[in-house]
Simulated assay, not measured.
Amino acid sequence: MAASNHEELIKRIERDLLDSYDEELELEIEDRNPDALGVDLGGADSNTDEHKAHRMAYFRELFKLQAELVKLQDWVAATKQKVVILFEGRDAAGKGGVIKRITQRLNPRVCRTVALPAPNDRERTQWYFQRYVAHLPAAGEIVLFDRSWYNRAGVEKVMGFCSDEEYEEFYRSVPEFERMLVRSGIRVIKYWFSISDDEQHLRFLGRIHDPLKQWKLSPMDLESRRRWEEYTQVKETMLERTHIEEARWWIVAADDKKKARLNCIHHLLTQFDYHEIEKPEVVLPARVRNPDYIRHPVPDSMIVPAIY
């Protein structure tokens, strides 16, 4: 029985690693037509026709949704909307994965990601929301917060990085803070990525055994694993005390990474009454050619060696 469980665990880790490699494949498929590329969608424990079909269906849906995200981006820029989207959840819940898929094909001048480190000594003496306010959008911008001011309701509370008084003050302030943002014309959307105990365990094992992902594991992540139940308690409190009409929480079932990405992006698109923005036809101008122009050769010593 133990051998069977170990074998199943290895298979699950292999599938998880394969999913992470799809990130690179998604970026390669620029023409939105995976059928024409002849891409090998096989891999360890994944070379069945059914599995390949599921992955191909995922790519097709993702590219369709990303095309809609481009339309949303153009609408936000043209109509001067201001949008804030918060992504919260346990460690390894898949927040970063969906943020990557949202921003993959968007203009970073319109849509940008904010992932702030722990506050420094000076920031710890400021008004709690001050360092987040500096990153709020101007007209025509979308800002994605990969973790947000809700750190105080989660990691800071569990790890003892804030006092009980600071914790309670956060709950007194945050509903009014978010209402103030909404009154100022900022749309606030909040997502919580929910994964099971077993799934987080698997994803942590995947990071431990994948040298390309080991950097994602910090001592804080490992401690959060030990304190699973404490995080559950503070999460439930957070959802109860900050789920307001002006900025409600949306829960994303995230045990299946690919479904979570598609469901979240699809839901995000439904939150806006956007439409395609008509653009003038782009005409490439003829290059000006000057008979006196001479292009000087680049010295060989400046050329990057052609190793590949």
Score class of each variant (00 low, 15 high):
residue 1 M to T: 09
residue 3 A to C: 07
residue 9 L to Q: 14
residue 10 I to N: 08
residue 18 L to P: 01
residue 19 D to T: 13
residue 20 S to T: 13
residue 32 R to C: 10
residue 33 N to H: 14
residue 34 P to K: 03
residue 35 D to L: 13
residue 57 A to T: 12
residue 60 R to G: 06
residue 67 A to H: 11
residue 72 L to F: 07
residue 74 D to S: 06
residue 79 T to G: 00
residue 80 K to M: 07
residue 81 Q to G: 12
residue 87 F to Q: 06
residue 91 D to L: 09
residue 93 A to D: 05
residue 93 A to Q: 07
residue 98 V to S: 09
residue 99 I to N: 02
residue 103 T to Y: 01
residue 107 N to R: 01
residue 108 P to W: 03
residue 108 P to A: 03
residue 118 A to M: 03
residue 118 A to Q: 10
residue 119 P to F: 03
residue 120 N to T: 11
residue 121 D to E: 15
residue 125 T to S: 14
residue 130 Q to N: 09
residue 132 Y to T: 02
residue 144 L to Q: 01
residue 148 S to T: 09
residue 149 W to Y: 10
residue 165 E to W: 00
residue 176 E to D: 14
residue 177 F to M: 09
residue 177 F to G: 03
residue 179 R to A: 12
residue 179 R to C: 03
residue 186 I to K: 05
residue 196 S to N: 08
residue 198 D to W: 02
residue 199 E to N: 06
residue 201 H to E: 13
residue 203 R to D: 04
residue 209 H to Y: 13
residue 214 Q to V: 12
residue 219 P to Y: 04
residue 230 E to N: 11
residue 233 Q to D: 13
residue 234 V to D: 00
residue 235 K to Y: 03
residue 241 R to C: 06
residue 245 E to T: 13
residue 245 E to I: 04
residue 249 W to A: 07
residue 253 A to L: 03
residue 258 K to A: 13
residue 265 I to T: 06
residue 270 T to Y: 03
residue 270 T to D: 05
residue 271 Q to M: 12
residue 272 F to C: 04
residue 278 E to Q: 14
residue 280 P to A: 13
residue 281 E to D: 13
residue 281 E to C: 01
residue 282 V to F: 15
residue 282 V to T: 14
residue 283 V to W: 05
residue 285 P to E: 10
residue 286 A to K: 10
residue 289 R to V: 15
residue 290 N to L: 13
residue 290 N to W: 09
residue 295 R to M: 08
residue 299 P to A: 12
